[in-house]
Amino acid sequence: MEFDENKLRAVFAEALGIPEADVVPTLEYNTIPQWDSLAHMRLIAEIEDAFDIMIDSDDLIDMSSFAISIDIVRKYVDEA
């Protein structure tokens, strides 16, 4: 599977319940009410499902912005 940034954006938008236009690289964890810790777990589950990957706990904690998430998810997709 190829990494697709637009697909990741769509997953973020769906999981956080925000418009895709708001999913920009500077979007950060805990800076909007929709991206709290519970939503983060939901988001990770949906990313794993969409890309068929399993993210390690350390990376899960590091995924604190959309920009960082791109790098991390890309790494897993490339490794798969």
Partner: peptide, 12 residues
């Protein structure tokens, strides 16, 4: 518990 719950979370 941690890893199982993460897999289960995918299906809610």
């Amino acid at each position: 518990l941690q890893l199982a719950s993460r897999l289960m979370a995918r299906k809610q």
